[in-house]
Nucleic acid binder design. Structure first.
Length: 364
DNA sequence: GTAGGGGTACGA
DNA sequence: TCGTACCCCTAC
């Protein structure tokens, strides 16, 4: 799978970074896995990183009067980029740890909602009626794939339209494309942007403060030490590595890089993935997106594999005998050597095929 | 790269 | 329906 597009990486980061309940360590993992994102594109993202840096600095105990948290906070605020996020209030509180913490709490609460939350609100939240009312049949079809049929029925019901006349989403449209999961991501991005140009009211913002009211548990919990996350951290992976952001994620990256390694990245859709669909039969659709509870889900059929099964080819007697001979000669498990030794015989067989075949031979 | 468990699809 | 080829996943 190609790396996540920068625009998509931005949306993911902007959402996660601005959610105070997401631990820094998890964000650090994301930073390591996602393509570089410039913080300059989003005041919310800039501010979120500044607040996280301050959270980390202020997380230590200051009851002992050592002044350590205040010193660390001043170090953070020495960065003009961080200080610029709080131009008005900072001078008043920078010598008072308690006041600084109150300021940080207040700033978290006033952080605007992320693009993802705004879009979700437009599609299935308070802005849904406008969005659906202005959507043509094709767009509604796409919208339904995002929100599920029961939510669609609810929205159309509120619009006074007959949900039973809605166009059906065909299976082909749901099936993952053989050309890669990015098409799905791209399609959803298009859908996510529905209504953006309509200048809709920001429905989500008014309730958003509650989302931030529960701060990240102060890192007095020494079991999970948090690494500082600074604005500089998101300028690129190279810089992130040197800023300590990737401290907890680096070992995993060495093991298997989420983008370039053999294992799929976090955002890659696996063909065998099971789809769980929101069951929005309750009143949760009345809530803003960030307040919805996880409802019961329905398990859907496994989608067809992204790569079609290759044509079945029965193993010939020659292939079977050669396989056994190869195992005798090179040893079981050296499938690559055997394949190289008999290129003509195993031209159309992968080493996995050979392994499976030998396994099947042993079963009978 | 390989092993092994387990699932799915295909053809007899 | 059943055997088997193929695929997927995880662990090593």
């Amino acid at each position: 799978m190609p790396p996540l597009a920068a625009a998509d990486a931005f949306r993911v980061l902007e959402f996660v970074a601005g959610n105070r309940r997401v631990p820094h360590s998890l964000l650090a993992g994301l930073l390591a896995a996602l393509p570089p994102v410039s913080p300059h594109t989003s005041p919310r993202l800039r501010k979120a990183f500044a607040l996280r840096a301050l959270d980390t600095a202020l997380s230590g105990s200051y009851a002992d009067g050592s002044g350590e948290p205040l010193r660390k906070a001043r170090d953070v605020l020495a960065d003009p980029g961080v200080a610029a996020c709080f131009p008005d209030q900072l001078a008043v509180v920078r010598d008072d740890v308690a006041a600084l913490r109150r300021l940080v709490d207040a700033e978290w609460e006033s952080l605007p909602p992320s693009e993802l939350e705004l879009e979700a609100d437009r599609i299935a939240g308070a802005g849904a009626l406008d969005t659906w009312a202005n959507a043509d049949q094709g767009t509604r079809k796409k919208l339904r794939r995002l929100v599920g049929e029961s939510t669609e029925r609810e929205i159309l019901g509120k619009l006074g339209q007959d949900p039973s006349k809605a166009p059906q989403v065909d299976e082909a449209a749901n099936a993952p494309s053989t050309s890669g999961a990015n098409e799905d991501v791209g399609a959803q991005n298009d859908e996510v942007h529905l209504g953006r140009e309509k200048g809709e009211v920001n429905h989500a913002h008014e309730d958003y403060a509650r989302h931030q009211q529960k701060p990240v548990e102060r890192t007095t919990d020494a079991r999970i030490p948090e690494k500082p996350v600074t604005g500089a951290a998101i300028k690129g992976k190279e810089q992130a590595t040197s800023s300590g952001v990737t401290g907890q994620a680096a070992p995993d990256r060495d093991k298997s890089h989420p983008v370039t390694g053999s294992k799929p990245g976090l955002m890659e859709r696996k063909p065998s993935a099971i789809v769980y669909q929101w069951d929005s039969g309750d009143s949760d659709s009345e809530r803003p997106p960030h307040q919805r509870r996880l409802p019961n889900y329905e398990r859907k059929m496994r989608p067809p594999p992204a790569v079609p099964y290759k044509t079945r080819k029965k193993w010939t007697e020659i292939q079977e005998r050669t396989l056994i001979e190869g195992v005798d000669k090179y040893g079981r498990g050296n499938w690559k050597d055997i394949k190289i030794a008999y290129p003509d015989v195993f031209q159309d067989r992968s080493t996995v095929d050979m392994k499976d075949k030998f396994r099947n031979l042993g079963r009978h």
